[in-house]
Each structure stands twice: as structure tokens, then as C-alpha cells.
């Protein structure tokens, strides 16, 4: 893509994010904000899976680390909720680093199991340390209004403009999402990104050309953990300042992988589409029929269909559609 086009696309993305809430109802804005949380987590997952070629089935648990960091610091230690977002990223980054350690020795299926184990165990861990986490009831920050940036009915004043809560959350998640996307883009363009791709394409070749593969794998997991943590932190805000263990079952981790692969592992637009897919398709599926089990059938069928029709994901489709355009430019 030419440089001009890239600027145009970036500007269009920013413009879209800025104007979208005007066309959305309040509840819909909240749903798009929730998709923004998935977007950020999938950005991180994409660094690990798309660029470094390592499978992680544990990113839902990394989101949980971020979510609980925000909830605990806000509920028990008097932090303002927004200030905990970077801290949540750092805590999940440490967890991501630890999760990346097995990747130094394990690969493929074995790594998948290792990360999946983390995802499966997370709800039980959260319930076990109930003094800290509130056990299976979770933590409700909704009533602790003083540390919260806004309330269900409140307005937030940003640069002299009053914003409805959910519009504010929309801008917050997608704003942070775009900034983090930019950071990821810079990262993968540089030396680190080249090392990531070298590890993905051939570990043997990467090692023989002097790349410390173990280091870069762990690094990818750590950075990715930061993204998932920020996504998880924002997830708390978007979920009415409430968090509980059953929100972060292993199915969240699977869902994130589905989002990443459906999105096509790569382009920014693809990742955004993947995030929207896992946010909205289950709801649409539930609207088709309310027989027990029917929503799962439709959601699963949508996943299978997308993968069969578009083996390169929604991102690939987008690329195909825009190709004639880019050629003309």
C-alpha cells in the first residue's frame, strides 16, 4: 500500500471511531465498547500467534488478571479506575511473561495445552483466594462511586464536552485500542518484529542466524499480556464496573482465538472485524431462536462457514475487496 493510502485509511478509521456513537443508541455504544476490549486483547494475541507463530489458548485468563487488578485496586486501595488501566496491563504483562516461559521449550500442541491449563484453572484460582477477589460473587465497584470515572446515568466532561457514560467508554476503549494498534504496528515494523517473524517462519533458521528464539517468544507473550490486561481492565468498566470468575472461563480464551483467526491474523481491520464477530454474532444467534442450545448451533455454524468460505479470515476478504481500489491509487 502506498504511503498516501495508509494515511487515508488511518484517518478514515479515526473518523469512523469519532462519529460512530452519534448513530448508536446508548446500549449499542456499550456493546461496541465491549468489542473494543476484545479488539485490544486480540491485538495482543495477534502478536503471539500471528507474528511469532505461538499458539495461546490462555489469553482470556490474562484478561482476567487485568480485570481483577483494576477491580481490586479500585475497590480496596482507593485508586481511580482510569489510573489502574496501565497497572492492569503491567500485572498481566508479568503473567504473560510467566506464561511465555514454557514456550521456550514447548511448541505446538504442548504449548496449547500449557496455556489452556492456565485458562481452565483461572476461575478456580479466582474463587479460591476469595479474600482478595470476592470469591464467586466477584467484585462490584458500581456502588463505590467515588473512585469511578462515571456512573450509569452520569456524564463525563472531556475537554469541556459532556459525554454520556457509554459514549465515553466507547471513545476510551477504541481510543486506547487505536493507540495500542499504532504501538503494535511500530513494534512489528522494527527489529523486534523481524525477529518475531523469523521465529514463526523457521525456528531453526532464526536460531542459526543468531536470534535468541526463547527470548523473543517470551517477549511476545509478555507484550501480548500487556494488551490482554488493558483489554481486561476496560472490560470491567464496560461491564458496569463488575467482575466475577465465571466471566473468565476457558470459553473466553477460545473465543479470543476464534476472533483472531476469523479476523485473519494480521491486518488491523481484520482484527477489528474479528472483535466485532465475537461480540455481535452470539447475540444475533440468540435472536434467531430461543430453544435451548439453538444459539450455540447458529454461532458455531457461523464460525465454520466463515472459515470455509474465507480460509484467510475476514481480513483477507477485506484485502481482496480493497485491492482494485489500492491498485487504482
Amino acid at each position: 500500500m502506498s504511503r498516501v493510502l495508509r494515511v487515508v485509511v488511518a484517518a478514515a478509521a479515526v473518523a469512523l471511531v469519532l462519529t460512530l456513537p452519534h448513530w448508536l443508541s446508548d446500549a449499542k455504544a456499550a456493546e461496541f465498547a465491549r468489542a473494543g476490549c476484545f479488539f485490544i486483547a486480540i491485538l495482543g494475541l495477534n502478536l503471539v500467534t500471528g507474528y511469532t507463530g505461538q499458539i495461546s489458548l490462555g489469553h482470556g485468563a490474562l484478561m482476567a488478571m487485568g480485570a481483577y487488578t483494576t477491580a481490586i485496586l479500585t475497590a480496596d486501595h482507593g485508586f481511580g479506575d482510569l489510573w489502574t488501566i496501565p497497572l492492569a496491563g503491567l500485572v498481566a504483562m508479568a503473567a504473560g511473561f510467566a506464561l511465555g516461559l514454557p514456550a521456550r521449550r514447548l511448541s505446538g500442541l504442548y504449548l496449547a495445552l500449557a496455556t489452556f491449563a492456565f485458562a481452565v484453572a483461572m476461575p478456580a484460582i479466582l474463587k479460591r483466594f476469595s479474600g482478595l477477589t470476592g470469591g464467586s460473587q466477584g467484585i462490584n465497584l458500581f456502588d463505590k462511586a467515588l473512585n469511578r470515572s462515571t456512573g450509569a446515568l452520569g456524564h463525563v466532561h472531556v475537554l469541556g464536552r459532556a459525554l454520556a457514560t457509554n459514549d465515553f467508554l466507547f471513545y476510551l476503549t477504541w481510543g486506547i485500542g487505536l493507540v495500542l494498534a499504532g504501538a503494535a504496528w511500530l513494534l512489528v515494523r522494527g527489529r523486534v518484529g523481524r525477529a518475531f517473524r523469523a521465529v514463526r517462519d523457521s525456528e531453526v533458521a532464526a536460531a542459526s542466524s543468531g536470534i535468541n528464539t526463547g527470548f523473543y517468544k517470551t517477549l511476545a507473550f509478555a507484550i501480548s499480556g500487556f494488551y490482554a490486561g488493558v483489554g481486561g481492565s476496560l472490560f470491567v468498566l464496560v461491564s458496569n464496573w463488575f467482575v466475577s470468575p465465571s466471566t473468565f472461563g476457558f470459553d473466553k480464551s477460545l473465543l479470543l482465538v476464534v476472533g483472531a483467526v476469523v479476523g485473519g491474523l494480521g491486518s488491523l481491520a481484520g482484527i477489528a472485524l474479528g472483535a466485532l464477530f465475537i461480540q455481535f454474532v452470539p447475540s444475533w444467534a440468540a435472536n434467531l431462536s430461543n430453544a435451548p442450545g439453538a444459539p450455540s448451533v447458529f454461532f458455531g455454524a457461523a464460525i465454520v462457514l466463515v472459515m470455509i468460505l474465507l480460509p484467510v479470515g475476514l481480513g483477507g476478504l477485506l484485502r481482496k475487496l480493497t485491492e482494485p481500489l489500492t491498485r487504482r491509487l
Binding site: A30, E31, S239, N240, F242, V243, T247, P282, A286
Partner: peptide, 13 residues
Amino acid sequence: YDDDGYDPSQTIE
């Protein structure tokens, strides 16, 4: 009645 999949964050939404 809407499906929340027994996940509290979906109940909220």
C-alpha cells in the same frame, strides 16, 4: 427473555 449463557458480564449487557 434473552440468553446470557450464564455469564454475568453478558447478563449486564
